[in-house]
């Protein structure tokens, strides 16, 4: 379990569902509970390395705060040009549709899986359900599937 290879898990997921980006953001209790994009597959930019989010900030921060998955089928329609920059991962990776899914440890959100496409509408409720039911119960040290209120 210690040596779980997150990168290949992300790459497999990305290939299987024909997505452009898959990434995992992780809460870091040792860094004041900062959230960083630690593993990524299919990225076109290195900006993700610099991003440090907190609960409630950015796409991963919102999922950590609410504990709920977020499915946006059309990023450009959902966010105005003046708001999108608050979600830097979507900007730097040019993501047009995505799902962000919470991963748990001891019933607390400790990581966020982002699966996205650079085509609007590619990610939708149907595909999200498909990916969600495909996820194993445990991904590395994280539990999946404890969607609160879903």
């Amino acid at each position: 379990m210690e040596h779980f290879h997150y990168e290949s898990f992300l790459e497999q997921l990305r290939n299987e569902f024909e997505l452009d980006v898959a990434a995992l953001a992780v809460c870091l209790p040792e860094e004041n509970h900062a959230i960083r994009w630690k593993y990524i597959s299919g990225n076109i930019s290195e900006n993700y390395r610099r991003i440090v989010l907190y609960s409630g900030k950015g796409t991963a921060g919102l999922v950590v705060k609410t504990g709920k998955a977020r499915i946006i089928e059309n990023v450009k329609e959902y966010y105005s040009a003046g708001n999108l920059y608050e979600h830097p991962i979507l900007v730097s990776e040019k993501i047009e549709s995505f799902a962000a899914i919470p991963f748990f440890k001891n019933q607390r959100v400790c990581a966020v899986l982002l699966v996205g496409s650079r085509t609007a509408g590619k990610m939708n409720q149907v595909l999200f359900q498909e990916i969600f039911s495909h996820l194993p119960e445990k991904v590395g040290s994280y539990d999946t599937g404890e969607l609160i209120g879903n």
Partner: peptide, 8 residues
Amino acid sequence: IEKTYGIR
């Protein structure tokens, strides 16, 4: 700025 938006 760098931390929040990933832009140097």
